[in-house]
Amino acid sequence: MSVSDLRQDYDKFNLQESDLAATPFDQFDLWFKQALQGDVPEPNAMTLATVDERGQPSARIVLIKDYDARGFVFYTNYQSRKGHELAHNARASLSFFWQPLQRQVLIEGTTEQVSREESQTYFHSRPLGSRIGAWASQQSRPIGDRSELEHRVQQFEEQYGDHPPCPDHWGGYRLLPERIEFWQGRPSRLHDRIVYHTNGQGGWTTQRLAP
């Protein structure tokens, strides 16, 4: 079978205006909880897209760690590629694809760093290996080989033991959304797409888009 022959029809659910929650955060919460309860692998995995100073976009999978009416939170090394790109251009987008539910959520907006207290609280909830890894990995920088990374892990294990502090170069970002699209797969590629836009007055408007 050629790549061009790969296709799947979507026929599980629909999305009607009458079903929408009052805010995109409530709608996201509903769909996220359904993804948690459904047969969705890593429902917290999302694609984060950023742009560098040349206008070159880059995308990678990260994990959402919190969300509320303020926005959507993820954590990373501030000195990583994504960190440098967000320092240059704070605008970014997130996308979730929950294939078993035949759904996508697309989120666009501006990022800001979360408070240091939030970063520290989350950091200390992580497994020890992940906390040591935040010190050992100079994320996105070239290294000679795997043994160099393993040596750094050993170095920080000896230095900090079971109580590594939260590095200054590590912490969270919150994406403050301006546009959130909910996409429900439908037969014959005639999908349901409804987008929430900020209205400039602290509220949201909705609009259906052609598939």
Rank of each mutant, 00 (worst) to 15 (best):
G55H: 02
E112M: 07
T111A: 03
F182R: 04
Q184F: 03
T47S: 12
R189Q: 05
D168V: 07
G38K: 06
F74W: 12
P127V: 10
A69H: 10
L63A: 12
F96K: 02
F32Y: 15
A49V: 11
A59R: 06
L176S: 03
G71R: 02
P187L: 07
D168Y: 01
S80T: 00
L128C: 15
Q207I: 14
H169D: 03
A45C: 13
V114I: 11
V62E: 02
L149A: 06
G109C: 05
P187E: 09
Q34I: 07
R152C: 05
E112G: 04
L30P: 01
I132R: 04
P211E: 02
Y122L: 15
Y75F: 13
Q138W: 01
D11Q: 14
R193F: 13
R193I: 15
Y67T: 00
D5T: 15
L63E: 09
R126P: 13
F96W: 06
A69Q: 08
F13M: 14
A92D: 00
R7M: 07
R103V: 13
E53G: 07
G129K: 01
Y67E: 01
N89W: 09
G133L: 10
V195S: 05
V195K: 01
Q16P: 05
D29W: 09
Q16L: 14
E118V: 15
F182S: 08
R208C: 12
D66Y: 06
V3I: 14
E108L: 09
S58E: 06
E117W: 11
I61C: 09
Q56I: 15
F97N: 04
V40G: 05
K12D: 10
T111R: 00
Y75D: 03
L149E: 07
F72N: 04
D145T: 14
A69W: 02
G133H: 06
D145K: 12
S4E: 14
D192I: 13
K12M: 11
P177I: 11
S130W: 04
F156E: 03
P57Q: 08
G203F: 09
F123P: 06
P24G: 09
Y173N: 03
A21Q: 08
L128G: 14
L48M: 06
E118K: 10
R103N: 03
L20G: 11
T121D: 13
V62M: 05
L15M: 11
L15H: 10
L176G: 03
P127M: 04
Q201F: 10
D68F: 04
Y122K: 09
L30F: 10
Q34T: 07
M46T: 02
Q201S: 13
S147E: 15
E178T: 03
P165C: 07
I194C: 05
G203L: 07
G133M: 09
R146W: 08
F123S: 06
Q79F: 01
Q120R: 10
L149S: 05
P43A: 09
L101M: 12
I64C: 10
A59E: 08
S115Q: 09
S188E: 14
A22W: 05
D5P: 01
